[in-house]
Nucleic acid binder design. Sequence first.
DNA 1: AAGTGGTCTAGACCACTCT
DNA 2: GAGTGGTCTAGACCACTTA
Lengths: 246, 246
Amino acid sequence: MTFSALKIDKDSPVPMYHQLKEAIKEQILNGDLKPNEKIPSENMLAETYSISKMTVRQAMSRLVSEGLINREQGRGTFVAPKHLKHPLRRMASFTEDMRSRNLEPGSKILKFERIPAPKEVAEALSIEHGEEVTRIKRLRLANDRTVGLHDTYLRKDIQISQESLESTGSLYKLLESKKGVQFKGGEDSIEAIQATEQLSEILKVPANTALLQVTRIAKDSRGEPLEYVVAVYRADLYRYTIQLNR
Amino acid sequence: MTFSALKIDKDSPVPMYHQLKEAIKEQILNGDLKPNEKIPSENMLAETYSISKMTVRQAMSRLVSEGLINREQGRGTFVAPKHLKHPLRRMASFTEDMRSRNLEPGSKILKFERIPAPKEVAEALSIEHGEEVTRIKRLRLANDRTVGLHDTYLRKDIQISQESLESTGSLYKLLESKKGVQFKGGEDSIEAIQATEQLSEILKVPANTALLQVTRIAKDSRGEPLEYVVAVYRADLYRYTIQLNR
DNA sequence: AAGTGGTCTAGACCACTCT
DNA sequence: GAGTGGTCTAGACCACTTA
C-alpha cells in the first residue's frame, strides 16, 4: 500500500477532502490502485491522516460520483472495475472530449460575428429576440481530420475576440480561465439527422448520410443559459458517450 | 412560506436528510417553491427542525445533484430555474423516459430466449464467450406508435420469465422491485446509423434513413455489468436528452 | 457587519457483511 | 464479534455576498 506516501496539508487553502480525493484519484489513474482493489477503510484513512471521518467521507462521496470507486456497506470501498472506453461524466468541451479519447483536438474558425439573436437562439438563451449575441462557426478536428461542425452562440455579456479564441483553441478554457466564467452544467439533446447538401460538402460525406447532432445549452453558476451550440458530427468518426448514475 | 407544515420524524428508519430532501423536493415539484425562489438558509432549517447543519447539508447536496436547487456561497440556496424540456439526469428505463415526456410507454416482445452470449455481448457483460444470457427483443411504443427497437441481453443469474415481463411492462421495474436488483448506473454510447433494410421494415421508415442508436451497459450495485442493450430509435420520434453537471 | 454557504472536528450509534 | 460504511450531533471557523 502506497498510502503512506500520501500527504495532506492542513494549512493549504485547498480543502483537505479535495487533497485526499485527488491523491486517491491519482493512484487509481496511474494504476497503483487496481480495479476491484479494496481501499483502506474510512476510519483507517481518518486515523492515518489525522482528519475526521466526515472529511474522509466527503472525499469518498465525490469519488463515487465521479464513478471511480464503489462503496458497499459492511464490506468496504473498492476501486471501480475499469472501463473499456472513456465515457464522460460531466459536461465537457470538445477539446476535453477529444483529449479523453487520446485524440488531438483542433479547430478552424469559419465565422466569428456579432448578430441579433435568431428566434431559436433567443429562446434557448432566455434573452430577447434580436438581442445581440456572438456567433462562432467552427470546423472541429481530431488528429487533423474533420469530425464535426460547431455553431456556437454566446450571451452578449461574454466578450471574447477571435484572436484570443484562436490562440487558446478551447472556448471553455478561454471562458473559464481568462474570463472568469463558471459553467454549472447544461443540457444536451442528441438526434440523428440526414446530411443536407451543404453539410455533406463541409464534412465531406455523401448527401443524406446519417449524422449525429448534439444541441447544447450550457449554464453559468447561477443556472442562467450562457452558450447555445448546435454541433453536427460525422457518424463514422464520432459517438457520444456518457456515464450515468441511477 | 409553507415550511412550518413540514415535519421530520427522528425515530423513523428513513434517514432525516432523506425526509427533508423529499419534503423540499415535493414543494418544488408541486409549485409551493417557485423557480429562483430562495430557500431558507441551512442554519435556519437546522434550527427549525432541530437537526444539525451537516444533516441539512446532506439533504441539500442531494437536491443539488438532482438539479432541483442551486447553492451560491454568500447568497443563499435557490430553486433551479425550470426547464422547457425534460432532460434526464440519471439512468432511466424507456418506460420512465417516456413518462417524463408525458407519453404512454408500451412494448411488444418479438423474441424472448436464452442463448450463448455472442462475442460483443460477452465482452460488454464481462462474461465468457458463449455463456448463457437472456435475450429480449422488443418493439418500444409511445402512445401506440413504434419509436424504437430494443435488443436486450441479461446476465444469466438474472432470471425472469416472459410472462412477468409482459405483465410488468418495464424491465427495470421488474428487476428492481421484484428481483431485488439494484442498478448503480451505466454507460450509454450514442451514434447515428443508417437504417438497414430490416430495420426500415420494422420501424416503418424508408431504407437508409438516419436512426439514433443507443448502446447501454447497465451495472449492478457492485459495478458489475448486468444488462447490455442496443436500442435503435426513429430519428423523427426520439431524441436523447441529458442534463449534465460540470 | 450580518448572513450565507463551505469546511472541519471528535465524538456517537446504527445497519450490514464476513468469519 | 470485529470491521465496515451510513447517519447524526453540536459545535467551530472560514470565504463570500450584500447591505
